[in-house]
Amino acid sequence: MNIFRLLGDLAHLASIFILVHKMHTTRSCRGISFKTQALYVLVFLTRYIDLLYTWISLYNFVMKVFFISSSGYILYLMKYRFRPTHDPSLDTFKVEYLVGPCFVLALIFNYRFEVTEILWTFSIYLEAVAIFPQLFMMQRTGEAETITTHYLAALGAYRALYIPNWIYRYFTEGTVDPIAVVAGIVQTGLYLDFFYVYVTKVLQGQKFELPA
């Protein structure tokens, strides 16, 4: 464990707390893509299936259980408690275009052709693009609540912080995980546009608005 990975994981935790906080205080899931949140449940379930047969550390175990359960809880909030506040007509990105290609890619580019290994690889590829429905939704409405932008900033920072972690691990441990690294760089890249608006507008106290 190094400082970059720890900060990355803490940013990931923070993003979830911000999202749940937003929903509870505004009693609404307006502006949040249900599809993106559902993809995260799929990502966590397919990646953390190793909970059933591997022990890494208490930290690793607790975090995995937290990510699975909190993502399920968010889905529950959106589907039941705050359902009337969700507008499916804005959440129109076709997830088949993400899940299908990610699965095919996982079948082709993986470390070993085994079920759990392919599921792990699939989860890495899917996580990289799972934010698309959310970004697509914001593109359509052209705006976002400030709290939603804090959520996205923390979520984007999480994978961005994994990049210096991988560089650090290469020099200290000699390990490189090409699948995670390439997907992580793509994932971070998808946030660059958002980060630009976040830093130049939201952090200056302005509303998050995209040019028409």
Binding site: D9, I56, Y111, T175, V176, A180
Partner: peptide, 10 residues
């Protein structure tokens, strides 16, 4: 030398 990845990340 580069070793194969260990899956200890989240």
């Amino acid at each position: 030398s580069v070793r194969p990845p260990v899956k200890d990340e989240l």
